[in-house]
Design a protein around this nucleic acid. Structure first.
Lengths: 149, 149
DNA sequence: TTATCTGCAAAGCCTTTGCGCAGAT
DNA sequence: ATCTGCGCAAAGGCTTTGCAGATAA
């Protein structure tokens, strides 16, 4: 859960950004964003839909999807799942990290010398059994950067 | 690309593991695994299918999917995309990392004190413009660990 | 008033599943 | 000979799209 203060702050910022971006400040958008801003469980669109339905029973799942997309494209929201579009595979079972081009979704192996640069949190949630760690360096590959010009 | 030596080694290991696991060593499996083991582009199932078709034109996409699943479940292959099942969202735009339960797919925020534990590779691929970094700590949450007993 | 948004329903990926024949052990 | 895997086709999720009526600016 999120504190009331923090939620209020996020909602104020949301309204302000809607104005700046020329996005209509609709009741649906407000409730959808509130559902997202008031939790730290990183919900799926379906879960957001279920939450929003409590307040707006007639809401449609399509509207939730459309607005989630609008919000992420406007930088009001972030996807935890950067590469969720499709399964991507790796036959290299050794520890290594990846570079991902956020435009074309190309994945490159990070240089081997950087195999274990991650400091593991000292305090994990109670009872969480850590197994391994996945690091994605996100950016734009040379080809996409050139294409942009 | 992967060196001939390294590929040969991976294929030897593959054959050996198939024997150990009681997996039939079929021509299709060999070619599918070879397609995966000879690249470092982290292909999609579709891309693997296209590659395999060159050698086995009658191969079916379903077979590729079934074997990819078999391979990942046997530990012969790894998914770069840990959370590709569905979109997961985050309204917290500050830098922070995530803990993921590989069983129930719950996502928790990592403690804030660990905000930037990642050392950025000194040598990036030519022209790659790094923007940010996503870290997932993978493991089993308390609830799932308890359920397993 | 005009542009944008919503709800509904249909369509579009990506992936899994079921079944009968073929192939591996 | 038996068990497992393959190809085919159908079905199942998740997500996007198109359109007419409704709402915000």
């Amino acid at each position: 859960m999120i504190s009331d203060d923090s939620l209020r702050h996020r909602m104020d910022l949301f309204r302000q950004r809607c104005l700046e971006l020329g996005l209509a400040y609709t009741h649906q958008r407000m409730v959808i964003y509130k559902a997202l801003a008031s939790t730290n469980t990183h919900p799926t669109p379906e879960a957001v839909y279920e939450q929003v339905k409590r307040e707006i029973p007639a809401i449609s799942l399509g509207t939730v999807y459309k607005n989630i997309r609008t919000f992420t494209e406007s930088g009001l929201l972030r996807e935890v799942t950067v590469l969720h579009d499709s399964l991507r595979l790796d036959a290299n079972l050794g520890d290594h990290h990846h570079l991902v081009c956020v435009r074309c979704k190309a994945i490159f192996d990070a240089p081997e010398s950087e195999a274990t640069p991650v400091r593991v949190p000292e305090s994990l949630p109670d009872g969480f059994r850590l197994e391994r760690c996945s690091v994605l360096f996100l950016g734009v590959c040379a080809q996409c950067a050139a294409a942009q010009q």
